[in-house]
């Protein structure tokens, strides 16, 4: 079966121990979490998690069933299976040897330089994984010193049933 990257959106009770339960569910079955983001929602008793995970259909079906089985889980959606929007924020620290060119690339992507230092600049970029890949590819020749990523977040679009 074909392995694919999936983005799973999990709505959970906002309580201590819940993150450990979810993480434990993945680790106990030997599944690796590629990316994870968690935060409180509009309703402070509820948290929203977005989990990136690789696997075939069978593994994914099991993951979703197991997540649903957890007492603290309110809702599970595999966003990959339908129309969805995804974004990630990354911060990239690049060698500041060629500022003019860096600025050009940053402008083309509609992103921003958020810190300018003697030796390096820090760039902020928001986008889907494709856009982030592109920008990183263009920045790499300048020498990337550090990258910090938030992990993906995703939401269903309106074209949804």
């Amino acid at each position: 079966m074909e392995e694919k990257q999936h983005i799973i959106s999990v709505t959970v009770e906002n309580r201590f121990g819940v993150l450990a339960r979810i993480a434990g569910l993945f680790s106990a079955r030997g599944f690796n979490i590629d990316s994870l983001s968690v935060a409180e929602t509009e309703d402070p008793t509820v948290s929203q998690m977005t989990i990136g995970v690789r696997g075939n259909e069978r593994i994914l079906e099991q993951i979703i069933k197991q997540l649903n089985k957890l007492i603290d889980v309110i809702k599970v959606q595999d966003l990959t299976s339908s129309d969805h929007l995804e974004r990630e924020l990354i911060l990239v620290k690049v060698n500041a040897t060629n500022r003019a060119n860096i600025t050009k690339i940053v402008e083309t992507f509609g992103s921003q330089v958020i810190d300018v230092g003697q030796k390096s600049v820090v760039i902020e970029l928001v986008g889907d994984s494709h856009r982030i890949q592109m920008m990183l590819k263009l920045l790499r020749p300048f020498g990337i010193k550090e990258i910090i990523r938030t992990g993906k977040v995703g939401i269903r679009g309106e074209g949804e049933k």
């Binding site: 201590f16 121990g17 450990a20 339960r21 434990g24 106990a28 007492i71």
Partner: peptide, 14 residues
Amino acid sequence: TTGITRPITKYNYL
């Protein structure tokens, strides 16, 4: 105790 028993209980509480 809740950490140790998390994977072997249906649910646990502190």
